[in-house]
Design a binder for these strands. Structure first.
Length: 558
RNA sequence: GGGCCCGUGGCUUAGCUAGGAUAAAGCACCGGCCUUCUAAGCCGGGGAUCGCGGGUUCGAAUCCCGCCGGGUCCGCCA
């Protein structure tokens, strides 16, 4: 609803500024008003008048009657706008009718995220990728896009060849989760290769045979990749993350799509021969990009070109969630795709997660697996539930612990800007009390609790109510906060900054808690009770929606 | 060496793209609030030369230049 308020402010401000020349309306969010404009400052310069005077003049030229705006005031040089009663009313009404996207059918977006190598379990670094990607997918869906999520499976890299080679020498441990069993073999194989360089040839032969499509080799690869992915999918499921499609790199080599890309680049790009290898010179990038190895096999970047060309034909926009290490690659990708007349993907690049002891590495066995973290955080959450809610039964306790644990984990990973490097601290990650997610979940549970008690008393929440009775600051502020949900979704859908959702969720919960503290609902007189119950219901709906966007479950009690 | 990113109370961060009103939160610390809808909550308090130095501007955490500290990339790896 806030989007519509802002649109109206823009409209009337433009009218009031008809006699002025201005570049921008300079509409800003402000703590002194529901929305404000600072345009008087810049007009002051060109018109050589005091900003205060100009602000007053503009306010005098605003239309007297508006729908969503109650009034506007010039406070010194600032022009402050305030929402109307009708705005508050419409906000609650819209929420009760269901939070539908303002715009629909905005086109198809394919978002690629996670895409961890199939050589072991997901670790905490992959988690950041997966959670950012998953939340963006949820935001874009709500913003009215048709979204498909893809996991790009690297089955052609040297890493996988090493794992396949290792699997030929030792079996996967049967008593371990599949992806962990693959990691054990992969780590052991790496160690062996370091000690015995004569085995390296065997690995390279596997790579050549796989690309050539040798049946027996393909089957060996498939076993390793599928084994690992089975485990990875289990982990993702626990985190409430689902991919619509798993796409194997190898398919693009065997279908001839990679060769087609190489041939086309030879015609359209600045390609030169270095021995038998092919190098592509890209504009603005000093280093040439190798598009074909001397031995004729393909490289990651070339396969990625074929993958993106394929994707581009299936959607209107492509979004790739990448770690910071892929930044140069993404620039090369964009430039090479331009040569092929393929639209560029949009990149969401996040800085790394490292351990206090240094960077993460599956090969060196230096990582914390997502499974281990999930396990421990759910245990911690369970202890917390036991401590606080001993009255709950044996089914509910672990259920709530799972919601709280996973919620805390997801919230933690998304709350900081993707630009920020994270040094992972296990103790800190497990400190449930400090987390943002339980705070938001708790507010939701409180709202549900009031509604349950009301239902038990036979008070219906869809009773007709008089909005004019909601006059307390905490009530008005809460409604305004609720109105900003659509504004937030629209904003994040365009700037792709998912941490803003986490911030909003926390603030919304805070406003609800204040309302809860200052405005008794069930013990209020009948008319106030009806109006406040409607507000509680709206708060519950938005809290549950914002949690859903974060991929966090909203418990009805905790 | 070059490119990109980060540097905000003791700790973790928001704000920076489009410069504006006393720099905003959480954690930690100190002090209050459970006979009223869940205290995973609420209220109050102390604590910041926004890395450093210049510049632009009526106005800079925000824009520009330089420096310092951290991260990351610069593979016929992925």
């Amino acid at each position: 609803m806030f989007l519509e308020f802002k649109a109206e402010v823009e409209k009337v401000l433009k009218q009031a500024l008809a006699s002025y020349e201005y570049k921008d309306l300079e509409i800003v969010e402000s703590e002194h008003a529901d929305i404000a404009s600072t345009v008087a400052f810049s007009l002051a310069r060109s018109y050589k008048r005091a900003p205060k005077e100009i602000a007053e003049d503009i306010v005098n030229h605003l239309p007297a009657e508006n729908t969503l705006i109650s009034h506007a005031v010039a406070t010194g040089p600032y022009i402050n706008f305030y929402v109307s009663e009708f705005f508050l009313h419409k906000t609650l009404q819209q929420i009760r009718e269901g939070l539908e996207p303002v715009e629909k059918n905005r086109g198809k977006i394919i978002i690629e995220h996670t895409s961890a190598n199939a050589d072991g379990p997901l670790h905490i670094g992959h988690l950041r990728n997966a959670i950012i990607g998953d939340i963006l997918a949820r935001v874009l869906k709500r913003a009215g896009f048709d979204v498909e999520t893809q996991y790009y499976v690297n089955d052609l890299g040297r890493q996988i060849a090493v794992a396949v080679w290792g699997a030929g020498r030792m079996a996967f441990a049967a008593d371990k989760k599949a992806d962990h069993a693959v990691a054990d073999v992969y780590i052991a194989a790496n160690r062996e290769l370091e000690e015995h360089s004569e085995y390296v040839n065997a690995v390279e032969e596997l790579m050549r045979k796989y690309e050539a499509g040798d049946d027996a080799t393909v089957r060996r690869y498939e076993t390793v990749v599928n084994t690992c992915l089975t485990g990875v999918k289990e982990t993702l499921k626990r985190l409430n993350i689902k991919h619509d499609l798993f796409v194997l790199e190898g398919e693009f080599v065997r279908s001839g799509a990679v060769d087609a890309v190489v041939n086309e680049l030879m015609q359209k790009g600045d390609v030169k021969l270095d021995g038998t290898a092919l190098l592509l010179q890209l504009e603005g990038i000093e280093k040439e990009l190798v598009i074909k190895r001397s031995d004729g096999t393909s490289l990651y970047t070339t396969r990625d070109l074929a993958y993106h060309r394929w994707k581009s034909n299936r959607c209107d926009r492509m979004i790739d969630v990448f770690g910071k290490d892929h930044e140069l690659v993404s620039q090369q990708l964009t430039k090479a795709l331009a040569l092929l007349s393929v639209k560029s993907p949009e990149y969401v690049i996040f800085a790394f997660v490292s351990l206090p002891s240094g960077s993460l590495s599956t090969r060196a066995g230096r990582y914390i697996s997502a499974d281990e973290l999930i396990e421990k955080i759910e245990e911690r959450a369970y202890e917390e539930v036991e401590k606080r809610r001993d009255d709950l039964d044996a089914v509910k306790k672990p259920e709530i612990a799972r919601m709280v644990g996973i919620g805390a984990l997801r919230y933690d990973m998304v709350k900081v800007s993707p630009d920020k490097h994270i040094v992972f601290d296990f103790d800190d990650a497990l400190d449930i009390e400090k987390k943002g997610a339980p705070f938001v979940q708790y507010s939701h549970a409180r709202a549900c609790s009031i509604l349950r008690a009301a239902a038990a008393k036979g008070v219906l929440t869809d009773d007709v109510y008089d909005l004019a009775l909601l006059r307390e600051d905490s009530e008005l502020e809460l409604i305004k906060m609720l109105s900003k949900f659509d504004y937030l979704i629209a904003g994040v859908a365009s700037d792709l900054k998912p941490h803003r959702i986490a911030k909003y969720a926390r603030e919304l919960a805070e406003y609800f808690n204040l309302f809860y503290r200052y405005c008794p609902v069930l013990n209020a007189d009948e008319e106030h009770r009806k109006a406040r119950l409607a507000l509680v219901d709206c708060a519950r709906v938005v809290l549950s929606n914002v949690l859903d966007v974060l991929g966090i479950k909203a418990p009805e009690e905790m």
